[in-house]
Design a protein around this nucleic acid. Structure first.
Lengths: 249, 249
DNA sequence: GTACATAATATTGTATACAATATAAGTGAA
DNA sequence: TTCACTTATATTGTATACAATATTATGTAC
């Protein structure tokens, strides 16, 4: 009996520790470093071309170089970071030629995504997408264009998730991130103001299951991104410490 | 004068060392481990679901776990390997549902690739592609279907390279590898015998710049892959030592 | 001062050591 | 035996130490 009581108490404690305490304490360090860098790049705090020094990141994120290098490699394979052997990692800086290829690839894939989304979108999906549009708009209202840009990308990615095609999601994750870099480098502003309307109209078409209309709207939407860019412009390059200044406060 | 002679001799020696000796000696270890594993999987020596033990690979390839883990992470991001936290890495084993998604994604992307290839294919490109078809056929003639399958994939990838769209190349690299896994798991043979003819016809259309015909042929070709599979079949699982037995000879 | 070669430093690449977790083997009670 | 539990082992996760390479600083000849 005594043993039983003891046993169950231990079970209880184990549960408490695993399900309550651990989530509060756990750091999931590798994901952290990756996410911080990813967000830093997509929020335009890290400009294209910026050198990413490993020990510097080590100090900023309080993890070893092992995890920093893991994060950088992952970002490289997502095409958001370039790693040159023995030279180090840099925030990717797509050339105009590559930018054109990226937008064409998005055109191809996202037209297929919209079609699938029209077929499979549920009521819950629509609500989720609507919420993301609202979040993007609220960022725009606050004048925080960097956040708006990131949330715009999340809307497109969510559409691919709704479409239910894992390879499309995987490919688009990289392409959308690269598009953010392209906009950071080449956009001459203004062109992004109409995004909300376009996203809303797109969602309406998807809700109705109107594949034809949805694809046309997506094509226009992606076309506007290209139109909003001036590929003769050259980008500015920021430094790492400035981009993560908020971590040292 | 004496110094000059010395100086130039050093230059010469440096050049000799860098340009002649190093390429012969160099190992490029990380790429090696990655390539070996990649080829092992695509050549069907490593069956889907196989556990990839890190120290075992360490001994096989004579590099530290650092590089093994690098290679595994890269393979994971190419969707050829699955890594479960604290559980280890496994050769990916796409479910029938994922297989369907993969083939649909290929359909979407490769139709666009063929179109671009029709527009941009040069004489040199045609020669290169023809050579790859011949290599694939010679593997078939020798009854080495594993090599044939790998070379078939390389043909498709080369087509994307000819098309000149980097994101398409990047996405297809993973999708083609995954298709190899799908065929390994679910193919009931026979369906692949007609591959050569289809690749040849495809190349003819591309050479003529006939986008319409090229896309139709590609669509049929990809359709045949799906038709050649039986998604009720369950896969066999091999062990690592057996797959790399040739390294220990 | 400039150009070049050399030395010092900083940065990345790889291997190893230690920690955390999961798996397998062993132990005792019903 | 079978089940729960403990202990031992194996495996993965992370940090650090060392090696190789690149970058910067210094010195010397012209």
């Amino acid at each position: 009996m005594c043993r039983y009581w003891f046993h169950h108490t231990v079970i209880l404690l184990t549960e408490v520790v695993n399900k309550v305490l651990k989530p509060l304490v756990k750091k999931d360090a590798p994901m952290d470093a990756y996410r911080q860098l990813f967000d830093g790049i997509l929020s335009q705090r890290l400009a294209p071309g910026t050198k990413l020094n490993e020990v510097e990141l080590t100090l900023l994120f309080s993890v070893s170089r092992t995890l920093i290098r893991q994060a950088l490699q992952r970002l490289q394979l997502e095409q958001v970071v370039e790693i040159h052997k023995n030279r180090g990692a840099f925030v990717a800086a797509p050339t105009p030629e590559l930018a054109e290829q990226i937008l064409l690839a998005r055109h191809t894939i996202e037209l297929a995504v919209v079609k699938l989304a029209c077929q499979r979108c549920t009521v819950a999906d629509v609500q989720q997408l609507q919420k993301m549009i609202d979040l993007e708009q609220s960022a725009i209202d606050q004048g925080d264009m960097a956040t708006a840009l990131r949330r715009s990308g999340e809307f497109h990615l969510q559409l691919a998730i709704v479409a239910g095609n894992q390879p499309f999601v995987h490919a688009l994750r990289g392409l959308i991130s690269q598009t953010s870099l392209i906009i950071t480098m080449y956009s001459h502003g203004g062109g992004n103001a109409c995004a909300r309307d376009e996203h809303s109209q797109l969602l309406e078409a998807v809700k109705r299951g109107d594949e034809q209309q949805g694809q046309e709207l997506m094509a226009h939407h992606l076309g506007h991104i290209a139109q909003g860019c001036d590929f003769n412009h050259s980008p500015q390059v920021a430094n790492v410490k400035g981009a993560f200044a908020h971590l040292n406060s």
